[in-house]
Amino acid sequence: MSSPERAIINLLLDLALSFDGAVLGLTLAISAVGSAIKCASTNAALNKINDAPEVSVADLRSLLPASEDKSETNDHGTSSDQRLVVVRGFVRPKISGDDNVLISSETGDKALIIQRTQTYVYSGWKRLFHSTGYRFMLERSMPKQGVDFMRKVPFVIVGNDQQSQSSYLFVNMDGSRQPLPLTTVYNRLQPINTSFLQAFLFPEYPVGLLDVEKILPPGKDITAVGICSFKNGVPEIKSCQDLPYFLSEMTKDQMIEELMDQTSFIFLGSVILGIVSVGILSYAAVRTWNRWKLRNQQRELTQRPSEPIVDDEPEDAEEIPDGELCVICVTRRRVPAFIPCGHVVCCRLCASTVERELNLKCPVCLQSIRGSMRVYYS
């Protein structure tokens, strides 16, 4: 680890532990709240998928019996009746024929969706020889993408035993952001001609290009989870932005099981973060309260008017018994008693010196004291 990176880590640790850990506690509390919100959204998605009916393509018309009639009277051509459903089936192009599918330029496979991603790969010399820690972390956390594009053709979902061309479910991909069940058919790392000096002196210069192509082949068995409605008499399904799935290779039971595991894990993490943040914030609050009280005591002592101390009448130390001499100066007689311990161990001058200290303690028993009072013997 280079010196700038070590300095950054030390700076972050100092900031996190500042104010007796209050910053760290607040950060953990915010993380706990974010985890709780994510847990609630995941649980809501779980309930939606669990309550959604799992139907075949042929049963969609019976599920929404009046949708087709309403769709004909709607100005926009869409039905106002919509419902979240789970449909399992095979994908095929909307219009049959080889002219209505895509062909992979690398493998020649037929596809309904082709996603091509090209990512530049950079050398690792910068980690060893360069000391620009800020730039290093930013560039490594955000790799530069060369090309990322997707091609797709209209496709539908048909039932497992459905051979008719007139009964299908059209998949509307507009606005969908969920991951797609694509199959990787091409993955190649193409090196870029780079000299040793270029890689050593210019770490931003790419040394390779990672080319990946993924496709959705016709006939693949998938599950669609989304909002189903009828448009011009044809059943159509759209993605629901509140759900993490739209088109997936998993079945409904597998989705529910995965969401249950995620909910349990996120909930446990939020509870742990919440407990730790409460403990750290409580510790910081107690430390701050104690410092505030100590500061107030110090302020009261500094603002207290200094009273003139009248020394006892001078005495000859040789005439005072050893058991009555002050334990601090060992020259004057013990006169005042400390409150509340009651020890008579100091003269008036040394007792006043003890009372001016920030941490008032008896010099014998080390118990906290509030002051002293003169003791008279009759």
Rank of each mutant, 00 (worst) to 15 (best):
L84Q: 09
R291I: 07
G89Y: 01
S79M: 03
G34Q: 07
I30H: 10
V354K: 14
I30T: 15
V55K: 05
E68W: 03
F90Q: 03
L197C: 09
F196Q: 09
K126Y: 12
A16M: 06
N187I: 00
D312T: 11
A351D: 11
I369H: 11
I192N: 11
V86L: 04
V354H: 13
T119K: 08
S80Q: 07
S282Y: 15
P93K: 05
P336V: 11
T251F: 02
S164M: 04
N290K: 14
I192M: 12
S67G: 14
S123P: 06
V121E: 13
D75V: 14
V212D: 01
L60C: 04
S378L: 08
Q254D: 14
D261A: 14
R127P: 01
I215N: 00
I227R: 10
R348V: 14
T331C: 04
V286H: 11
Q190M: 10
Q145C: 09
L180A: 06
D316Q: 07
L169W: 01
A58H: 01
I227N: 10
V171L: 01
V101T: 10
P363Q: 08
L182Y: 03
L182F: 06
N193M: 06
V57P: 02
R6F: 12
C329K: 10
P65L: 04
A16D: 08
I113C: 05
M373I: 13
G208E: 04
E315G: 07
G108W: 05
S167Y: 00
S56R: 08
G175C: 00
F155R: 03
F155I: 06
I275T: 13
R334D: 01
N296P: 00
F230A: 08
M1E: 15
